[in-house]
Amino acid sequence: MKSSNKFKELDSLRAIAVLLVLFLHFSTAFLFYSHTYDVSVVDSESLLRQAQLIMGAKGVFLFFSLSGFLIVYLLKLKGFNKFNYRTYIIRRFWRLHPPYVAALVIFFIVHLFLGDYDVQLLVQSFFASFFYSHDLVFNHWSYILPVAWSLEVEIQFYLIAPLFIYICTKLKSLFFVFLFFCLLLAASLYQFFEFRNLVKYLLYFIPGMFIAELYFEKLLLRRKSIFFDVAFMVSFFALVLSEPSIFDSLLLLVVFYSVFNLKLLNKFFNNEFLGFIGKISFSVYLLHYPLFHLLMKLFANKILFFDAYEYDMLFQWFIFFPITIALIYPFYLIFESPYVNKLTFTGNLKGLILKTKIMFRNAVKF
């Protein structure tokens, strides 16, 4: 979705979500190619690794809540009197599909070149992924682009969100009761679904939807206070450091409610670096996983200065995270940004130098 100055807090929250996912996947790639550290031993003994395994999943849940907020807000802003389902789907299609298909094609070719999968399986995986149905067909995430499983869940949400919001609009005063009922229903059904679909993850979309309704109807308290800084920190760390449970949706409610009222943390959430990462987060999400594996295949065993997983992994993270962002940014300019900002590649490139200077100047000041 298009970034908005009105929702800078959410852009930063999106950046935090993608960083949580990246932090997990980098450690996974590091361990996969490491000749020094045994993944089973690290998984059982390293507190950092155990935290990473939890944080990665919670990053995806944050993405789901962000989608719940933004889709509901935009649908309510547009109004159902002028709503056209076909136009809505086309806009969602053009927002996601060009960069998604570009990533699919790129890594389809890479897998063909590597020969790590049977060609027939790759072709089948490509078309199942192209139509956002890989989990439904294979009951397995995409062999070409594993992170795409969450996009399939997002698409399912996009398809039914207008109907869901329309019902809530008609219910008016019963809106919150209806959302609460759906939350309880989703939580109760959660345990029965081993494969990844919207029913399994609906409880993570609903907190964002709930806060969007409060925001749109001007029922969301807008009073910056240290109380909300504390509420955010407690709920956020309780969320990202605890095992997934039905209580995550309640913690997400507090996170989303408090993020609009931060006082001491407000400067942090308006930092240009987080805003930049939030803006390119979709391209980063699409490409980071295979890029991490490529980089770790080349360097995981060549840059080791410590005898502890935590230090070696973190040292390489601080080296290869900025390199990964630099490699992904041209992809964002070519395949994503034109469909978001309606700018050409040249136009984006001209603004890159100025924006980069501003971003790093502000980051240094912060």
Rank of each mutant, 00 (worst) to 15 (best):
I16P: 11
I16S: 11
I16Y: 09
V18W: 05
V18R: 04
L19K: 08
L19A: 07
L19E: 08
L19Y: 08
L20K: 05
V21S: 09
H25A: 02
F26I: 02
S27C: 11
T28Y: 12
A29T: 07
A29E: 08
F30I: 02
L31V: 07
F32K: 13
Y33T: 11
Y33R: 13
S34K: 03
S34W: 02
H35K: 15
H35Q: 15
Y37T: 07
D38Q: 14
D38E: 15
V39L: 12
S40R: 12
V41E: 14
V41M: 12
V42N: 04
V42W: 04
D43N: 15
S44Y: 02
E45V: 02
E45C: 00
L47H: 05
L47T: 06
L48F: 09
L48E: 01
R49G: 02
R49A: 08
R49W: 05
R49Q: 13
R49C: 02
Q50M: 07
A51R: 04
A51T: 14
L53T: 14
L53Q: 14
I54G: 10
G56P: 05
G56F: 06
G56S: 06
G56T: 06
A57Y: 11
A57M: 13
A57R: 15
K58C: 03
K58N: 05
G59F: 04
V60E: 01
V60Y: 00
F61A: 14
L62D: 05
L62Y: 05
F64A: 02
F64R: 02
S67H: 05
G68K: 09
F69N: 12
F69Y: 12
F69S: 10
L70M: 15
L70A: 13
I71K: 07
I71F: 12
I71H: 09
V72A: 14
Y73G: 00
